[in-house]
């Protein structure tokens, strides 16, 4: 960006940096507590609970070891990856055409479609009607039961539509004059210009599928199908429920640490994917140099 680095601009930049630092601290300080919780050793936990400052030598990976050593962990992780990849693919394949169609102002029937779509956003039928549909289709123990009902989010579709609408019309028009059909316009003109929003919406879907525990829990009975969030949730809520505390399945780590470690493990893909997404977020997007 070509800002002239005047004195005022520098002062302004310092102000922005301070503001962002404050935000960062507000976020990080409580989050620090989660991190410490995941690494606190059992003896310190039972003595004083979760300290805010943990001496560097005391940090332990025990909770992570226990979780990852769980007999179902590898399987559940893999299931989560499959559900997420399949889910995002199906979601995007269904969402993009609808968003693009709705962004085309002069499409006959657009208003009708919009009304029908919006109606499903406002009126959510709730758990049982969806369950009846899915079991009626014999989709129990099938990943499609987890993926299809939430596959198209109206919210995401409309956000994407709004971005498509913001694209300069003349580029599309130029392509059409060159004889391109709508499919080619979408593929060659619209999508390349919409990377940030495609990544954003893709990320929204991915995070949804990655974290979702309730639908898998409803529709998947076979233990070898369950994804990571279900496994972690069972661990997470078990401690408040075990009446008969005869033996512990996890003996060397406080249950609080297991919960926190579970959360950190779920976040890991975010850390891995983020730099890749970031590249597309920082690059200038409207590469064509279009003037409005």
């Amino acid at each position: 960006m070509l800002y002239t680095k005047t004195r005022d601009a520098r002062i302004y930049q310092v102000g922005i940096a301070i503001f962002l630092t404050v935000i960062l601290l507000i976020i990080v300080i409580p989050f620090w507590q989660v991190i410490v919780t995941a690494f606190v050793p059992l003896d310190i936990y039972t003595r004083e609970g979760i300290p805010f400052f943990l001496p560097p030598t005391k940090w332990t990976l025990e909770a992570f070891k226990q979780l990852m050593g769980h007999s179902q962990f590898a399987r559940a992780l893999w299931n989560s990856v499959v559900i997420t990849v399949l889910g995002v693919t199906i979601s995007m394949t269904l969402t993009v055409p609808l968003a693009y169609g709705l962004s085309t102002r002069n499409l006959p029937g657009r208003k009708l479609i919009m009304t029908l779509v919006l109606f499903t956003y406002l009126f959510s039928p709730g758990l049982i009607p969806v369950y009846l549909l899915i079991t009626g289709m014999k989709l129990t123990n099938n990943y499609l039961a987890v993926i299809l009902p939430p596959a198209v989010s109206v919210y995401n579709t409309l956000v994407m539509m709004s971005f498509f609408e913001g694209l300069p019309e003349d580029l599309k028009e130029a392509a059409r004059l060159d004889g391109a059909n709508e499919l080619q316009v979408l593929w060659n003109v619209v999508l390349p210009l919409s990377k940030p929003i495609l990544l954003t919406i893709g990320l929204f879907y991915a995070v949804y599928f990655w974290n979702e525990f309730f639908t898998p829990l409803l529709y998947l009975n076979r233990n070898d199908l369950l994804p990571l969030p279900v496994l972690l949730r069972n661990i997470l809520i078990s401690s408040s429920l075990n009446e008969y505390v005869e033996y512990n399945a996890f003996s060397t780590s406080p249950i609080e640490s297991l919960k926190a470690a579970g959360v950190l493990i779920t976040m890991l893909p975010m850390f891995l994917i983020y730099p890749w997404i970031q590249r597309y977020f920082t690059k200038g997007t409207l590469v064509g140099g279009v003037k409005e």
């Binding site: 394949t93 269904l94 969402t95 055409p97 609808l98 693009y100 169609g101 085309t104 002069n106 499409l107 006959p108 029937g109 479609i113 029908l116 779509v117 499903t120 009126f123 039928p125 709730g126 049982i128 009607p129 969806v130 009846l132 549909l133 299809l148 009902p149 596959a151 198209v152 059909n181 709508e182 499919l183 979408l186």
Partner: peptide, 30 residues
């Protein structure tokens, strides 16, 4: 106009079918 936009309708068809089955299906049960 509709004929000119046939590709667009074609593209949207799977999603529209999806809406009928998975969004309006439950609404019928509702």
């Amino acid at each position: 106009t509709m004929w000119r936009q046939r590709w667009l309708y074609f593209l949207m068809t799977p999603t529209l079918i999806y809406f009928v089955v998975f969004k309006y299906g439950p609404l019928w049960n509702a």
